[in-house]
Design a protein around this nucleic acid. Sequence first.
DNA 1: TATATTTATCGTATATTTACGATGAACGAT
DNA 2: ATCGTTCATCGTAAATATACGATAAATATA
Lengths: 105, 105
Amino acid sequence: MAVSKKEEFTQEEIWLADVAKALSHPARIKILKTLNKMNSCMVGSLVNKLPLAQATVSQHLKELKRVGLIEGEIDGSKICYCVNTKSLAKAKNALDKLFNKIGCC
Amino acid sequence: MAVSKKEEFTQEEIWLADVAKALSHPARIKILKTLNKMNSCMVGSLVNKLPLAQATVSQHLKELKRVGLIEGEIDGSKICYCVNTKSLAKAKNALDKLFNKIGCC
DNA sequence: TATATTTATCGTATATTTACGATGAACGAT
DNA sequence: ATCGTTCATCGTAAATATACGATAAATATA
């Protein structure tokens, strides 16, 4: 890619695409689902549930954090991740709006 | 990436991630919005509305077609693209389901 | 038939993503 | 203080994505 053209779109389009990108890997979908289901939200527990190395899981968590879909809270030597309900709602609304807008042929 | 680990997840997770991937570029978001708004759905018209070369737009259309979000119908020497309402609804429902499932911290 | 129009595909350059081992930093326990 | 645990980050390799010019294929038009 010679140069990115992403600046040429609206902020809304860029942001929505960015959220979609955060959701665009099955590991990250599974992380979101797992975070909600588990009692523990430690990274180690997530690693146990995923077919990926710890470093890779950490990288996926970073991507989800980047767009604000999750947050990590330090708890001693561990870190407890959880879904950011507010960001999640914002993303859901924006996607709903998009889907409603492009409804029909 | 030494080797892809995507097979290690559920079909639902893989499919949902794939749909998200199709939405993960502002050009593709804009294409979906534009397709719905325009009288014409020709590729040429889309190219005029986007800051991208024809070849690039064609590539983005291919990605949207890959996951079934749009369809192209041949009309003489032109091709008319439109949103696939059914796929769109399926994607919307799956995303809603995901967002509801992962609701809270 | 020759020419223009329309769109997909090829070839290619560069950027980004994905994955992992190794290492480092911060904390808790001994 | 030393050692184990927990997690992020670095370095790196390979795969994918993005972008474009050039070209091909198919149709429309002169």
